[in-house]
Design a binder for these strands. Structure first.
Lengths: 132, 132
DNA sequence: TATCTGTTATACTTCAAATATAACAGATAG
DNA sequence: CTATCTGTTATATTTGAAGTATAACAGATA
C-alpha cells in the first residue's frame, strides 16, 4: 500500500491518511480482511507521530472501514465496507454543493461537470498503481 | 442576499461566507455590478467581527468574483466572473477525487453518483429562494 | 520473559481562526 | 470645513485543532 502525504497541505495529515486508505479500498488495492500496518510501524515509515496514525485509524474504525483487534492489529473490515446510507448521501450532497455552486458561477455546464466526474471514475476502474 | 452561517461548523466562518457569495452568483441572486454590504455593516448584521468579513472579501477579490473600490465599496465583478481555466479544473478534480473515492468504496455506482450531481444542478436552475 | 499490539494519559508547541481596539487615508454629503 | 462613510493596516489577545513527545498499561504471543 503506497501512501502519499503532503506535509505542507492545509489538509490535516490524519485526514489525508484516512483518505488514502479509503482510496486503497476503492481501487481494490486493499481487500476485506487484509492487514494494515501497526500504528507504530506506519508512523515510523511515514515519519510522523504514532498518535496521528492512531487518529486516522480511529476515524476509519468509527466509519466502519476497518476493525481493530486489540492485540492482533488492524484489518480492513472482513464483512465489507458499510454501504452508502441516507446519512452518507446527505453528507455527500453537502460536500458537492459548494463545488457545483462554484462551477456554475464559473460558467461550467452540467455536462462538462459530469464529464469531469466520469473521468475520475475511469481512473478507478482502470486500476491505477497496484505496486506497493 | 440571505446569509446562512453555522457558527458551530468546523468550516471557518470566512470560508462559509465566501461560499455563500459564490452560491448567490450561481443562483443569479447576485448580478455583475451589484453592490455588497460594507465589511462593517455585514459584520454587524451577522454578528461577527469586521476582520472575518474582510478576510472573505479579500479572498473573493483575489479569486476575481468581486471588485473593491477603496471608498465606493464592494461590487460583484461587472465584467462577469472569471471563467473556469485549467488551474480551476485541476483544483476541482483534486476536490472531487476523495468524494468519488469514498462513494466507490461504499458501493455507489457511477450512475448513482452522477444523478446526485444532476439533482444538485437542478436546485440551481429552478431558482431557489430569491427573497433577500 | 521479552516483545509485539492498541490504548490511555499528560504536557507541550505550533498555527489558523476569530475577536477586540485603534488608527489612517480618501471620498462624499451636510 | 466637518462629520461620516469606505477599505486598509496594525497590534494584541483568546481559543481550539493538529501534531509531537514520553510514558505507562494491559493483553496476546513467541
Amino acid at each position: 500500500m503506497l501512501i502519499r502525504l503532503d506535509l505542507e497541505s492545509n489538509e490535516p495529515i490524519y485526514i489525508q491518511l484516512r483518505n488514502q486508505v479509503v482510496e486503497g479500498i476503492a481501487k481494490k488495492q486493499l481487500h476485506p480482511g487484509e492487514a494494515l500496518p501497526s500504528v507504530r510501524s506506519l508512523a515510523a515509515d511515514i515519519g510522523i507521530n504514532l498518535h496521528t496514525v492512531n487518529k486516522a485509524y480511529q476515524q476509519l474504525k468509527q466509519e466502519g472501514f476497518i476493525l481493530i483487534h486489540r492485540q492482533k492489529g488492524v484489518v480492513i473490515n472482513p464483512d465489507g465496507v458499510p454501504q452508502a446510507d441516507e446519512a452518507y448521501m446527505n453528507q455527500l450532497k453537502f460536500k458537492l454543493h459548494p463545488l457545483i455552486s462554484e462551477s456554475i458561477s464559473r460558467g461550467l455546464s452540467e455536462k462538462e461537470f459530469l464529464e469531469v466526474c466520469s473521468d475520475i471514475f475511469s481512473d478507478f476502474n482502470k486500476g491505477g498503481e497496484k505496486y506497493e
